[in-house]
Design a protein around this nucleic acid. Sequence first.
DNA 1: GTTCTAGAAC
DNA 2: GTTCTAGAAC
Length: 270
Amino acid sequence: MITCPFVGLSVRRKRTNQLCCPIFSQLSWVEGQKPPLKTRSAPGSKFKEDGSGSRKRPLEMSTADKESHKEAASVKAAKHTEELPSGRSESVGHWSQGLKASMQDPDMQVYKDDQVVVIKDKYPKARYHWLVLPWVSIASLKALRKEHCGLLRHMHGVAEQMVQQCPQARSLDFRSGYHAIPSMSHVHLHVISQDFDSSCLKNKKHWNSFTTEYFINSQDVIGMLESRGRVTVREGTGDLLKAPLRCHLCRHQLATIPALKQHLKSHFPS
DNA sequence: GTTCTAGAAC
DNA sequence: GTTCTAGAAC
């Protein structure tokens, strides 16, 4: 339990379950990307906004990687279009298809195995923000079926191991989950630390997509898939993005994003 | 998803 | 005057 110094409310800080994954010990880290991963430094203040979370790298694939993931690439090439969560289809070059290029880019990959790849979010919304993506092309939560349960459990296990290898695993809380209505095509599991200390977190949509029920815990998605064979999203979930800004720890309401960021400093004193 | 910017809010 | 948001464009 912690207490918000602003409003005096006690709140429970939920920690991600730290499961020991027997599978993971057999997996390999991407060469040159030894855990723990490098993160941006924050000298002087833990909430310094230096913008170094952004990266500018070409998204071209190496020949070797193109070869090793020929199957995934051929799926992309054959389809030309991909259904979005909205139900619309978009061509391969559309911004919503960007994860397909990023996941194939060796410079973006921090971990991979035969089922999944992990990349750092290009615009991290916290000190630590990874995406776990399956090699197989699954457009969105809507396309998930019971046979995907094993894959999602594996993604969850990899997410937990990402947290475990994090140098701040003991001092930060993490959540792993999915956006109910993602903008980007290709199912991706967010693994994000709960400090939300990032210059890339800029607006209400960013905040509410990670701190309201718009963000669905990985375990809840798996549970829904196991019990009902489908993942359904409650009506009106999209409206949550426009909800008032509330602190995820003490529920204190803030009028603006800068005010919210200032408030967060009270929970994470430097 | 991000960037840009008009205009609302202060 | 500046800060900040929200919607269009990409």
